[in-house]
Computed example of a mutant assay.
Amino acid sequence: MPDLDDIDRRLLRLLQRDATRSTQELAEAAGLSTSPAWRRVRRLIEEGVIGRQVALVAPAKAGLHAMAYVQVSLMDHTEPTLARFDAFVQDHDQIMECATITGSYDYQLKVVAADPEGLEHFLMRQMLPLGIIRSTVTHFVLRQTKYTTALPL
């Protein structure tokens, strides 16, 4: 586990807001010269603190107007069932997030689709026919009041 100092945290905050900043811009904003800023960012990448840099696409602008959180309870917790569900999750791009959770359900998924009918089709025609799901509860997102990928550093 790398030790993050104040400068590392400052660089990470800047990159979380805009990963397209040039090394010169990062250096100036962090109070460094260009070479040390570049070396620190490279180290953060090599140590796995920065996993990847991506473009955040607005779902509605990409034609994805429906989002839901789906809680899933599996029939059993055998290795084949878990592996099959995990493979399903990895194979379907509509599933934005998947987390194993505590409580009455085993997983929580964040799923997107073009419209509510698309979400229903995904659940009823793709996920439930797996035959390994005991039950689901779906919560449609009406309005997203906050969305961030930035960690509080």
Rank of each mutant, 00 (worst) to 15 (best):
Met1Trp: 08
Pro2Ala: 14
Asp3Val: 15
Asp3Phe: 12
Asp3Lys: 12
Leu4Arg: 04
Leu4Asp: 00
Leu4Cys: 02
Leu4Gly: 00
Leu4Thr: 01
Ile7Phe: 13
Asp8Pro: 01
Asp8Tyr: 12
Arg9Leu: 15
Arg9Glu: 03
Arg9His: 10
Arg9Ala: 06
Arg10Asn: 08
Leu11Arg: 02
Leu12Thr: 03
Leu12Lys: 05
Arg13Ile: 10
Leu14Arg: 04
Gln16Ser: 15
Gln16Pro: 00
Gln16Gly: 12
Asp18Gln: 07
Ala19Ser: 15
Thr20Glu: 11
Arg21Trp: 10
Thr23Met: 14
Gln24Val: 13
Glu25Tyr: 09
Ala27Trp: 10
Ala27Ser: 07
Glu28Ser: 13
Ala29Thr: 05
Leu32His: 08
Ser33Gln: 12
Ser33Arg: 13
Thr34Leu: 14
Ala37Phe: 12
Trp38Phe: 14
Trp38Arg: 15
Trp38His: 15
Arg39Val: 09
Arg39Ala: 14
Arg39Lys: 15
Arg40Lys: 15
Val41Thr: 02
Glu47Asp: 11
Glu47Leu: 10
Gly48Cys: 06
Val49Asp: 00
Ile50Glu: 01
Ile50Ala: 01
Arg52Asn: 06
Arg52Leu: 06
Val54Phe: 14
Ala55Trp: 10
Ala55Asn: 07
Leu56Ala: 13
Val57His: 14
Val57Glu: 03
Ala58Asn: 14
Ala62Pro: 00
Ala62Lys: 09
Leu64Thr: 01
His65Tyr: 14
Ala66Met: 05
Ala66Thr: 02
Ala66Lys: 05
Met67Phe: 04
Tyr69Arg: 08
Val72Pro: 00
Leu74Met: 06
Met75Asp: 08
Met75Cys: 07
Asp76Arg: 09
Asp76Trp: 09
His77Glu: 09
Glu79Ala: 12
Pro80Arg: 11
Thr81Glu: 00
Arg84Leu: 09
Arg84Ser: 06
Arg84Gly: 01
Asp86Ile: 03
Asp86Gln: 13
Phe88Leu: 03
Gln90Ser: 07
His92Lys: 08
Gln94Leu: 05
Gln94Ile: 04
Gln94Lys: 07
Ile95Pro: 00
Met96Ser: 09
Glu97Lys: 08
Thr102Met: 13
Gly103Leu: 11
Ser104Phe: 09
Asp106Arg: 10
Asp106Met: 10
Asp106Ser: 08
Tyr107Val: 05
Gln108Asn: 13
Leu109Ser: 00
Lys110Met: 11
Lys110Ala: 10
Val111Glu: 00
Val112Leu: 11
Ala114Gly: 09
Asp115Arg: 05
Pro116Asp: 03
Pro116Val: 05
Leu119Tyr: 01
Leu123Glu: 00
Leu123Ala: 02
Met124Gln: 10
Met124Ala: 09
Arg125Met: 05
Arg125Ile: 01
Gln126Cys: 02
Met127Gln: 02
Leu128Thr: 00
Pro129Trp: 08
Pro129Gly: 03
Leu130Met: 10
Ile132Cys: 02
Ile132Glu: 01
Ile132Arg: 03
Ile133Thr: 02
Arg134Phe: 09
Arg134Glu: 02
Phe140Asp: 01
Phe140Gln: 07
Val141Met: 12
Val141Phe: 13
Leu142Val: 11
Thr145Glu: 15
Thr145Lys: 13
Thr148Cys: 09
Thr148Gly: 12
Thr149Trp: 11
Ala150Pro: 01
Leu151Thr: 14
